[in-house]
Design a protein around this nucleic acid. Structure first.
Length: 271
DNA sequence: AATCGCGCCTGACGGC
DNA sequence: TGCCGTCAGGCGCGAT
């Protein structure tokens, strides 16, 4: 389940392989992703040279000469660059054939991902407008969070996972960051103290940075078939550890559902 | 405006 | 062995 660290690791892995390359052609094997892959994508992309690969939230932005390919990995999506002659794997839905004899392949078993094209600045695309700050951006501060949370009764965990609050914090890292910050995930967002918001800002950055770093060492090579981000083996302190002892106080970790999402926390360490 | 809950989709897993 | 139900989850969207 790609969260921001996985997407950023993908971006870093793809950058040296794609920038400067020209797309020769596109093959669409299954266009029914979260939104249909645009019908004209082959014609649009043929001859386009890749200028840069950026990331906004969990969207990868493959910037070309006359527009931008917007890619979202959804839950199970991954990208790899392999020799074009390699046989297709199950769930390889789209491939971009490059001028160096390789292909960028988009594989996504659950098809929650997306692959779109925009001629305009992608940051004003409907999917990207209205997103909150990047977690490593200077705008993501305790006072920003306190301001946004003022008067809100929604629990702090879904508040944190709302992309309008801050982007890139999915279910796993939300539980992890709240544990590190010592905040009960069920607490109303409007009732979180200023020092707690500051701890949360730090915790979000720490946990994401660790995961990105782990990704950097986990992923050796996007240019071979092993180049999929998968699920990073950073040590999770509460996520998936329901009933097991808290790493700090040994109290059994609680598991509850919050906003339809499984949520893990230590009732003793998180207030 | 804020909040809630649905639906998309496949694979893993448990129970029978 | 196979079948069926349940769960997992990002995220846009419609309903309240």
């Amino acid at each position: 389940m790609p969260e921001l660290p996985e997407v950023e690791t993908t971006r870093r892995g793809l950058e040296p392989l794609l920038v400067g390359r020209t797309v020769r052609s596109v093959r669409v094997h299954n266009r029914s992703l979260r939104w249909p892959v645009p019908r004209g994508i082959s014609k649009t992309l043929a001859g386009e040279r890749v200028r840069a690969i950026d990331r906004r939230s969990k969207y990868l932005l493959v910037r070309c000469m006359h527009g931008t390919l917007i890619i979202h990995l959804g839950m199970t999506g991954h990208l790899r660059v392999i020799p074009a002659a390699e046989p297709l794997r199950k769930h390889d839905h789209v491939e971009l054939l490059l001028d160096d004899g390789r292909a960028l392949r988009f594989n996504d078993s659950r098809r929650f991902g997306a692959l779109l094209w925009t001629k305009d600045d992608p940051l004003v695309h409907p999917l990207l407008t209205g997103l909150g700050p990047e977690p490593f951006d200077g705008a993501f501060t305790d006072s920003y969070l306190a301001g946004r949370a003022k008067g809100r009764v929604v629990a702090v965990k879904p508040f944190l996972m709302d992309a309008k609050t801050v982007v890139g914090v999915g279910n796993i890292y939300a539980s992890e960051a709240l544990f590190r910050a010592g905040i009960d995930p069920r607490r109303a967002a409007g009732k979180v103290s200023r020092p707690a918001w500051q701890r949360l800002v730090t915790a979000v950055r720490d946990v994401l940075a660790e995961a990105i770093e782990a990704g950097g060492t986990t992923i050796r090579d996007f240019a071979n078939s092993a180049g999929e981000p998968g699920y990073f083996r950073i040590s999770l302190r509460v996520y998936g550890r329901g009933g097991e002892p808290c790493v700090t106080c040994a109290t059994p970790v609680k598991q509850v559902r919050l906003g339809q999402r499984s949520t893990y926390f230590c009732a003793k360490c998180q207030k």
